[in-house]
Computed example of a mutant assay.
Amino acid sequence: MHPLIAAGVFYILSGLLFPVTLLGYVIWTGSLIVRRGSGVSTTAQGPLSARWAEHLLGTRKDEGADRLMRVLPGVPSLGPRLTAGPMLFAHRLTGYVPRAFRYPFEGEVPPRYQASARITFFDAAVDRYLADIDQFVILGAGFDTRAFRLPEDRAIRVFEVDTPKTQALKREMVKTAGLDSARVTYVSADFEKEDWLDRLVGAGFDIGKPALFLWEGVLIYLEKQAVEDTLRKIASTARGSVVAFDYFTTVSLESRALYWRMARAGTRAGGEPLKFGIDSSPPVSERLAGLLLSCGLSLGEHQVLGQETEGKRAWGGFAIAVVK
């Protein structure tokens, strides 16, 4: 089928079946609202569902994400199935993949695609740095499944750091899904209240050896002090350690644009409001580099999200910082 025709048919079918998608979304999000206040992160399902969608569409295989999605506690299985069903049906008839779920993600990243686009950035960081580093720390791991995609012939030690209740739920889900977590060491800590590095070392992390820290979708929910404290702790680890992370700028906290007003309202409703943003004054690369330098880190790689032109400011970015 010609690509333009495939795209047209795909969106026509998706439009016709939108009531099914909407019903699934209501069932799914309704269960999250009921669970609010349990101490378990509600935003952790966002990255998991993006990886799951890519798995279903065949663009990025992630058996761990697929199996965890099947055992989401408190979420009727009908919710995710109805939500993704029309998209999957239209894809199978046309072969078309929506831009949000193409892998690797290419081109400019709009705010609504940030969670799916960053998968490509972080996967690339994992592939590049774990070729020479054998300690992998996932900060604010949520329902991350990268530990289950690592090559079996590599002796990589994986540590997942997250709040006690979210992590307890993750471990229960992993067990129920039948995933092998033998290579994962779980470390419970609240970034804003506890010394996560001390607990990490106590769990077997070798502070004298380089490590890859993955900090995905977390900074925006922390107070500035917690962000800086975490960066300083990473800077205190062995030379050659790196941290890959994503961030929003102050645009996300201050913009009156409809998208950002809805984003702030949505995270507040889920009990996890947006708190932190890098100063958006152009060029944002200098603002980010300054923050990292003040915490003892050096900016190594940076992808600015949004255009920095007269009247426009970057709204976020993906970055890698280095311990030197």
Results as ranks from 00 to 15, higher is better:
L4H: 11
L4M: 11
A6S: 14
A7D: 00
V9F: 13
Y11R: 02
Y11K: 01
P19A: 02
V26C: 09
W28H: 13
I33W: 11
T42V: 13
Q45W: 01
P47V: 01
L48V: 14
S49T: 15
R51V: 10
A53D: 07
A53C: 14
E54L: 15
G58Q: 05
D62R: 04
E63P: 11
G64N: 02
G64F: 01
D66C: 09
P76L: 03
S77E: 11
P86Y: 03
P86Q: 07
H91M: 08
L93Q: 10
Y96F: 15
F101S: 01
R102D: 00
Y103F: 15
G107C: 06
P111I: 03
P111Q: 00
F122A: 10
V126Q: 07
D127L: 13
D127Q: 13
I133N: 00
Q135G: 06
L139I: 14
R146T: 15
F148P: 14
L150Q: 09
L150V: 11
E152W: 01
D153N: 15
A155H: 11
I156P: 06
R157A: 11
V158L: 00
V161F: 02
V161H: 01
D162S: 09
K165M: 12
Q167A: 06
L169C: 13
K170C: 00
V174L: 10
D180V: 14
D180K: 11
K193P: 08
E194L: 06
D195E: 10
R199N: 09
G202Y: 05
D206N: 12
F213R: 07
G217Y: 02
I220T: 13
I220K: 08
Y221T: 10
Y221W: 05
T230W: 03
T230A: 15
K233W: 06
I234F: 12
S236L: 03
S236P: 14
V243R: 07
A244V: 03
F245I: 13
L253S: 02
S255F: 03
S255M: 05
A269G: 09
A269N: 07
G270S: 01
G270A: 02
G271R: 03
E272T: 06
K275G: 04
D279A: 00
S280I: 03
P282L: 02
S285P: 01
L292I: 10
L297E: 05
L297I: 11
Q303N: 05
V304H: 05
G306N: 06
E308L: 04
E308M: 00
R313T: 12
A314K: 08
A319F: 01
